[in-house]
Design a protein around this nucleic acid. Structure first.
Lengths: 340, 340
DNA sequence: TGCTGGCACTCGCACGGACAGAGTGCCAAG
DNA sequence: CTTGGCACTCTGTCCGTGCGAGTGCCAGCA
């Protein structure tokens, strides 16, 4: 029905205008800026229907309309085409990310890049340990009774942990221990490392059993720790841009939520490299995020998501552009990490 | 002279009142809240002098006075006694920091703790590599032609770096290389590592020379990289508290400067564990910080500063309290890291 | 010489009314 | 189903007023 179609067209126009101007959009302005082929009066009728259906709302009686969360949702799902990145943007991605020397560096650059491309807050997750495998384990004696265990994963992540053995450690046992651990765990997925432990304990020479037990449990703890999943955040300055307009009151709760990394990690939980996930306003479970949108995607190869990255911004954001940017960056990062 | 003394007393009272109330303070309010023993009229005369000398200023003609940067400076230098921490605060420090499992964890907790204690933005620097020594070097083969070099310092810091050798690497050479590197560099200060390289190259077996060269230069690069000095930042949400009152316009430039870690690192450059450094407003070279104050101190043993930590906040801050908090936390962190 | 009370003066700010502008809803006609 | 017209309802802004806080100055007093 041409009827419904035009109504959707009106919604699209409202979203586009509102995102770019930040002013509630009225029927007259709409008919001028877009070629809808009908008069403002007709648009008003459509708007009344859209409002009744909950897609738009007016801040006060004599203002224009503003999209609701539901309106943005419809826009994202049905009205927006993926906006291809400009050449300059593609260039920027390469220029920014090439030349990174290690994982920390890659992710640091990624977060700055994303923040710059989207002008929003960017969030990048370290490759999750639970989806990584052991590349190498290193044991270094720190003091007579303490060892430092260094875990290097196949994703290039390096985790350290001090293990207190409660008893004096013979320095000569350390290389032995190292060899033993590596032969047992090298190439093993971290999620499966637990299963190897009993076996390892059995086959280990008696004088090493105590050490192996201590170190293994430290290794497994590393996995369980909520802190195991690290996050890099950047571009928070972008929150201070249109704050008064975009966020009710202050950006404070949002900043707090971002620092409370757990909150973001939970959002990041279900990422997948093949689809860009968009959570709009109230769709975010966390209260501080109810006036924000979260656009995320997984990075890594298609078989295996290493982690996620995304952006956080006001619900009034350029969804097509941001989705494209997030996806493009994730792809590039995925390639980059696959190489190393 | 009793004269000058009272004038200073007036300045102290102004600073204290202004910090706690955030309102320009007038002569009448001052005489009521403080026991200066003179009438408002007299205080007015003193204030006129203080203003002439540049210690205070009035936002507009019928408002009270507000301290200038110079006024805060005098206050910090001569008028403030070190405020001892409350028992609760001491407790909080211990409770917060004990139980940290590794360096990353310690610094993460530290930054949260500082932010919470001072209600300002907290900044903690990783132990600088240039002041650390090598505890262990680990070499792991990543692909046929690439190695990952992992540096573990005596401060518990772990740095990684991928080294491209441009030529196929014999897996059997890796353990050899590892032993060689460790015997050469273990215990050596990173600043002195460069000097060891020529010697090492000479004594190394011929078939390893190429590898040693590649790895050594990567090691030295790690030192030079500006990114070598990492920073943890927390409590940025505190900036959004009284923003409009404390910072002209927005907090945006400040947030940008904080993300631009170099800026903060430069400020942190001259830290020293024995004295708390306070930079007030315009004293900060960087433009974005001219309406902010920076309170910092080094942590580590008295002989050796490992790094610095501090807070950033509006010039209108509780200097004695914040200085005490920063110093106490630095001491505790210093002890903690000395142990490991 | 220094302190004090008194007084006139200056501003910023909050309050309230008037006004213009934007936008709507409804209705009757095409 | 669309359109032009019209009355209505808001909000944001501008202006004038009054109030209160705070100052600077001056003359008197110890």
């Amino acid at each position: 029905m041409a009827h419904d179609e035009r109504r959707l067209e009106v919604l699209r126009a409202i979203v586009q205008d509102y995102v770019s101007t930040n002013d509630p959009v009225g029927s007259k302005a709409l008919s001028e800026r877009h070629d809808l082929g009908v008069s403002p009066a007709t648009i008003r009728n459509d708007m009344a229907v859209l409002e009744e259906q909950g897609y738009i709302t007016q801040p006060h009686t004599s203002a224009g309309r503003v999209p609701t969360d539901k309106g943005y949702r419809l826009f994202v799902d049905r009205l927006s085409a993926v906006k291809p990145l400009s050449v300059a943007e593609r260039r920027a991605i390469e220029r920014f990310l090439d030349g990174a020397v290690d994982l920390h560096d890659v992710l640091g650059r990624t977060v700055r890049l994303l923040a710059q491309l989207t002008r929003q807050v960017a969030v990048v997750q370290y490759p999750t340990l639970s989806r990584s495998a052991v590349r190498h384990l290193e044991v270094v004696q720190v003091s007579t009774a303490r060892l430092m265990l260094v875990l290097i994963t196949d994703t290039g992540r390096v985790e350290q942990r001090v293990v207190d053995c409660h008893t004096e450690v013979d320095p000569d046992a350390v290389p032995e221990l190292r060899t033993l651990l590596n032969s047992a765990f090298s190439g093993v997925k971290l999620t499966e490392a637990g299963g190897k432990v009993p076996d390892l304990l059995e086959t280990a020479p008696t004088h090493l059993r105590g050490l192996v037990a201590a170190v293994s449990s430290a290794l497994l703890e590393t996995l369980v720790e909520p802190s195991e999943d690290r996050l890099v955040i950047g571009g928070t300055a972008n929150l201070a841009r249109g704050s008064a307009l975009d966020f009710p009151g202050t950006v404070r709760p949002l900043l707090e939520a971002l620092e409370e990394q757990v909150v973001v990690l939970r959002l990041m939980g279900e990422v997948d490299p093949s689809t860009v996930l968009v959570r709009i306003g109230e769709e975010n479970a966390h209260e501080a995020l109810t006036s924000a949108s979260f656009v995320s995607v997984g990075y890594g190869s298609s078989e295996r998501a290493l982690g996620g990255l995304g952006i956080v911004g006001p619900t009034r954001m350029d969804y097509p552009g941001n989705m494209a940017a997030v996806r493009a960056v994730a792809r590039y990062v995925g390639q980059l990490l696959a190489e190393s």
